[in-house]
Amino acid sequence: MFKYQNTKSSGSKSWVIQRVTGIALVILMIGHYILMHYNPDSGHTYQAVLNRMSYSWYRIIDISFLILGMYHGLNGVWGIFRDYKLKTWQNYTIFALLLIFGLAFVAWGLSIILSIPYVHTSNIH
């Protein structure tokens, strides 16, 4: 990927994706903040999480939030490193580390979201 930085892959696709995911994240973040902080109970109690997670569409939004955020963030960090002319082995190491950490934490987040049981108990959302 970075080997052909100036020829085959100019990074223009990732540039567009970075903007598209950024816009999506701004929209998701507005909803996230309203849900988490409009009412202190909705953000910080187990029952509220259970209730939200009893809807599959909410899980889908959560999972896409996780993946979009992780991609946008790590692509941004990768972009910072690409601003400096590093040696090829350094680029490979950084890229591999970002990829491994990103995949591991996305997997962890997915396992957390999917392990929450489907129960609807009260009316706190």
Binding site: Y46, F105, W108, G109, S111, I112, S115
Partner: peptide, 9 residues
């Protein structure tokens, strides 16, 4: 954030 929400499991 992912770490801090891990007790959900």
């Amino acid at each position: 954030h992912i770490y801090s929400l891990s007790p959900l499991t």
